[in-house]
Computed example of a mutant assay.
Amino acid sequence: MALQRAVSGEVIDAAPLGSQLGEARTTALIKTSDLEVIRLVLPRERSLPSHKVPGTITIHCIEGCVEVTHSSVTMLRPQQMLLLDGGQPHALRALEDSSLLVTIVLRPAR
């Protein structure tokens, strides 16, 4: 089954999931040739191992608390955002049930 992604002009609900967070799954909200936006859902104590992407990324914590390990360790709490340069290794670990908006630039600036 193909995932539904937003199209130009469509409003995307990025509000906290609240009581639905426990049942929610990670979803790609937008994917174009230049940009991808993902709602990443991480249950408490779940982690993503160290990885990197070529383009710049932002990680915006909507709800919960996530530890991001990159060149240092950063704690993200609701309404906080982190910018990481393309190619920078990073890992995430949820300290609470969490949802985040992750924006990835797919075509790095030349």
Rank of each mutant, 00 (worst) to 15 (best):
E23H: 14
A94D: 09
S50F: 00
L48C: 04
E36I: 02
L76K: 01
L82Q: 13
S72A: 14
A91Y: 11
S33C: 04
S98V: 00
V73I: 05
L100C: 07
R93Q: 15
T69F: 00
E96M: 15
K52E: 10
S72C: 15
L76Y: 03
E67D: 05
A28P: 02
G87D: 09
L83Q: 11
Q88I: 15
T74D: 01
V41E: 02
Q88A: 15
P89M: 11
A91C: 11
P49C: 09
S99H: 06
L76R: 03
I62G: 01
I59V: 00
I62E: 00
L83A: 12
E23T: 15
V73P: 03
T56R: 12
D97T: 12
V73Q: 04
G22W: 05
P43V: 08
P78K: 00
S98E: 02
A94Q: 10
E23C: 08
H90C: 04
G86Y: 13
K52F: 12
L92Q: 11
L101R: 03
G86C: 13
M81E: 08
G55A: 07
L48W: 11
S99W: 12
E23R: 14
P78F: 03
C61H: 00
D85S: 12
L21N: 14
S47Q: 14
R39Q: 07
L21R: 10
E63H: 01
E23A: 15
V73G: 01
S19P: 04
E67L: 12
L21K: 12
Q79C: 00
I59P: 01
L48P: 02
P54N: 07
R93E: 12
D34G: 06
H90S: 06
I57M: 02
K31L: 07
S98M: 01
V41F: 05
P78M: 01
T56E: 12
T26Y: 06
L95G: 06
D97K: 07
G86A: 14
R46H: 14
Q20V: 05
C61F: 04
S71G: 14
M81Q: 11
H60P: 00
S19Q: 10
L82K: 02
S99D: 08
P78Q: 03
R77H: 03
Q88W: 09
C65K: 08
D34V: 03
L84D: 09
V68D: 12
T27N: 08
V53I: 07
L101F: 05
T56D: 13
G64N: 08
S71Y: 10
G86F: 11
T26R: 13
E36G: 15
G22C: 04
S71P: 04
P78V: 00
G87T: 07
G86H: 15
A94W: 05
T32E: 09
L35N: 02
P89Y: 03
I30D: 06
T32Q: 13
H90M: 08
S47Y: 05
V37A: 10
L40W: 14
